[in-house]
Design a protein around this nucleic acid. Structure first.
Length: 418
RNA sequence: GUGAGCGUAGCUCAACUGGUUAGAGCACCGGAUUGUGGAUCCGGAGGUUGGGGGUUCGAGACCCCUCGCUCACCCCA
């Protein structure tokens, strides 16, 4: 660690401070996301950061890596097992079932922005506390919704000026077609066993789909021969996927079909997709999601299908362009006690009228104060000295051009707000 | 969780095969310039060399432990 605090109380591994210098990017990302989501009819929903551990075991899936090894689980004073949410979808589903939201006439479109917690080994783009913007749609089984979600994601990213992205799509089938595909894939992998690396030989039994992921040439050429899930989809899933792709074409969205895109969450059915950026490292997904038609039913709720995605805010912010909308503020320069009082009054006046305004509290020379105004990147400076106080006219300087004029406070306000 | 690499000032980096008081640039503070910024010059402050232990006459450097960061695996956002 570069900086340790005096008592060696540093931030917890995998967590980080979001400092003022960068926070504008977060605000911009959050504001833009909310605006776009609401344009598509989504409403914000907020649920607690911790839930019963069982919720995630059931919702996220007992065989998922998240549940097996990445949850922040603790026991409260009453002996209940609680877990800091590692993802958002199960909470939303819980809330819908608990509040009977499916009995209301409103659209079941929800969005949310907040922190998530996973006990992972931190690295670039991966943290133990991280933030997601999530959206979920319930009760819409048509592929139009799948395509609309991808289209919305793309619109959002382009609004934020994010370049160099790729959209990957796939279908993982349903309970009907997936098992038979798995069987075929394992068979194919076994017959190519001798061409595969050690790692991939192990994957044959644990997670054959991951063989597609291997970067070694031998495995890649072997995997090219493997059957693809898109060839094994049942008629319903195939039709859904075909229409989904057609609609992406309709929106003129470039995409790649990636059979390897299986995602680590157990609950996905049919559509899965990811948006990746070449500017990120090994963790290159800015957002990812898919359809989960069985989750609500599995929860003991009604048989309502769902689809959504989660966007990683840290990753998003790290690929956002650096150019910041210039904020404009006034730096008031004063000299001596009397002048300081007048400066305080003027500051109050400008702030009340919507002009961001700062001034120096230390006794500093005029020259120093001007220098501070420059370093802080003030748009204007206003000099308040003996002469000015007598005349009730102050020196307003445009720091960009260096032009200075003598004005009353009303005139100054007018100049700065026009 | 596994494997590898790296931790020196706020930032970017120096310091020979172990050798005196750990240096420089940028940034910060002050002065040159008592009412006008950006440039220049001069000065100042800033470090338990991530932390702890060991080897040695002597450790920023070597060894062990620990914490953190980075990369890859795994997996995900």
């Amino acid at each position: 660690m570069t900086a340790r605090s005096p008592k060696d109380l540093s931030s917890i591994k995998g967590t980080q401070d979001i400092l003022p210098k960068i926070v504008w990017k977060w605000q911009k990302a959050e504001e833009t996301a909310k605006k776009i989501f609401e344009l598509y009819g989504y409403k914000e929903i907020r649920t607690p950061v911790f839930e019963a551990t069982e919720l995630f075991e059931k919702g996220t899936g007992e065989t998922s890596d998240i549940v097996i090894k990445e949850m922040y689980t603790f026991t409260d004073k009453a002996g209940r097992s609680l877990t800091l949410r590692p993802e958002y979808t199960p909470s939303v589903v819980r809330s819908i079932v608990e509040n009977r939201l499916y009995l209301r006439p409103e659209l079941m479109r929800y969005y949310f922005i907040g922190p998530m917690f996973r006990y992972d080994k931190p690295q670039k783009g991966r943290y133990r506390q991280f933030h997601q913007a999530d959206i979920e749609v319930f009760g819409e089984k048509d592929p139009e919704v799948d395509a609309e979600i991808v289209e919305m994601a793309r619109t959002l990213l382009s609004k934020l000026g994010i370049q160099d992205i790729d959209i990957l799509v796939n279908s993982v089938g349903c309970q009907k077609c997936r098992p038979s595909y798995h069987k075929k894939l394992k068979q194919a992998a076994k017959t190519h066993r001798e061409h595969l690396c050690e790692d991939c030989q192990r994957k044959i039994n644990t997670n054959p789909l991951r063989i597609f992921d291997c970067k070694k040439d031998e495995c890649r050429s072997a995997a090219a021969e493997f059957p693809k899930i898109t060839e094994f989809l049942c008629p319903e899933c195939k039709n859904h996927f075909d229409r989904f792709c057609e609609l992406l074409d309709f929106y003129r969205i470039p995409y790649q079909v990636e059979p390897k895109l299986v995602r680590g969450l157990d609950y996905y059915t049919k559509t899965t997709f990811e948006v990746i950026s070449s500017k990120l490292g090994a963790q290159d997904a800015i957002l990812g999601g898919g359809r989960y038609d069985d989750m609500m039913k599995d929860f003991g709720g009604p048989d309502i299908c769902g689809i959504g995605f989660a966007m990683g805010m840290e990753r998003l912010v790290s690929v956002m362009p650096d150019k910041k909308d210039s904020e404009k503020f006034l730096y008031i320069v004063h000299m001596g006690e009397k002048s300081k009082k007048v400066a305080l009054e003027l500051a109050k006046y400008f702030r009340d009228n919507g002009v961001e305004c700062v001034l120096e509290y230390k006794e500093r020379k005029l020259r120093k104060q001007m220098s501070r105004a420059d370093k802080l990147n003030a748009a204007w400076s206003l000099v308040v000295g003996e002469e000015e106080i007598k005349k009730k006219k102050y020196q307003l300087k445009d720091m960009k051009t260096g032009n200075q004029i003598e004005v009353t406070k009303q005139e100054a306000l007018k100049r700065m707000t026009s």
